[in-house]
Amino acid sequence: MRVEIWSDIACPWCYIGKARFEKGLAAFAHRDDVEVVHRSFELDPNRSQGDTAPVIDMLAAKYGRTLEEARAMEAHVASTAHSEGLAYRTEGRDHGSTFDIHRLLHLAKVRGRQDELLDLAYRANFGEERSVFDAETLVALAVEAGLDGTEARAVLADASAYADEVRADEREAAELGANGVPFFVLDRRYGISGGQPAEVFTRALEQAWDGRVPQPAGGPAADGAACDVDGECDV
């Protein structure tokens, strides 16, 4: 059975949702027969490369909040992340274009290291003092994930490398009706939106395995906390 996950490295609920899905998968009896594929979804596709801003400033501007209110929003998400055993910094993080990260994740997919790179990128972005919007940081993460540094640097230097693959993922998400991430599709029969609790994922896996079709992938069976196509994230 295949599970496809549309997500963006800038989305905190994708970070949390991935951890919850993996817990749900671990409780699934047929987990060894599940193939997980990560798909690209940019929350801010029109943002220029190199255009970065502090996350707190971005949140305040997007939601029309004060800086203190934006910090409180981040603190709430951080508390949820911490409850899942995830590192999460509420200060000192940047927001920027994730197009290069998605392109590099497609290289990692070809090399069989996609999940490893995604975990490292999430951890760097949300839990460490490392900006994932810096090319050299991305190369270092690629090497940590088991990729060849020279190949990773060449992909980042060529804006067309894996660009079509990123755009194809995003078009497919739109065709499936995904208007936010994380978005999970189980065997092209069952869609789930948002960072659901682990037990929801376990039940969905069991239903998909048994061949029941409670709802087509075009409409999520349940909604959880997510980030939408306008880049707004539930808090």
Rank of each mutant, 00 (worst) to 15 (best):
F99S: 08
L105P: 02
D230E: 14
F184R: 05
A157V: 03
E175V: 14
G211L: 06
A225R: 11
R39A: 03
I16C: 10
G191V: 07
I192P: 02
D158I: 09
G211K: 03
G149D: 06
A222K: 11
V132F: 10
A10Y: 03
A198D: 13
T137E: 13
S83D: 14
V229G: 06
R2E: 11
G146M: 10
G218L: 01
F184G: 05
L118Q: 10
H38Q: 13
V3Q: 06
E172F: 02
A174R: 15
R123A: 11
L25Q: 04
L104N: 08
V55G: 02
E35N: 05
A208F: 02
Y190S: 00
H38L: 14
A135F: 07
I56Q: 15
E68M: 01
G64H: 09
D94G: 03
A204I: 08
F183T: 04
S131N: 07
M73W: 01
G218R: 13
G180P: 09
D115C: 00
V155K: 02
A53E: 15
D187Q: 13
E69R: 04
G64V: 12
F21D: 12
A60C: 07
T52K: 14
V139S: 13
E69C: 03
E199N: 14
R188G: 12
P220Y: 10
V235M: 10
F41T: 02
M1S: 11
G112V: 08
L86E: 11
A225E: 05
G194I: 04
A161V: 05
G24I: 07
L147C: 08
P220K: 03
L186K: 00
R65Y: 06
D57L: 13
R71I: 00
A204E: 05
A157Q: 09
V200P: 00
C233P: 01
I5A: 07
L67V: 12
I101F: 07
E69N: 03
A75G: 07
A75W: 00
E4F: 00
E4H: 01
V139M: 08
R189P: 00
G85Q: 11
E69K: 05
W6K: 05
L25C: 05
G224E: 08
K109E: 15
K18W: 08
L118D: 02
E74Y: 00
L186S: 01
Q215I: 01
F133P: 12
A221M: 12
Y190Q: 12
Y190D: 01
F183V: 06
E199A: 12
G127Q: 09
A27I: 02
V200C: 03
G194L: 04
V155A: 02
M58Q: 12
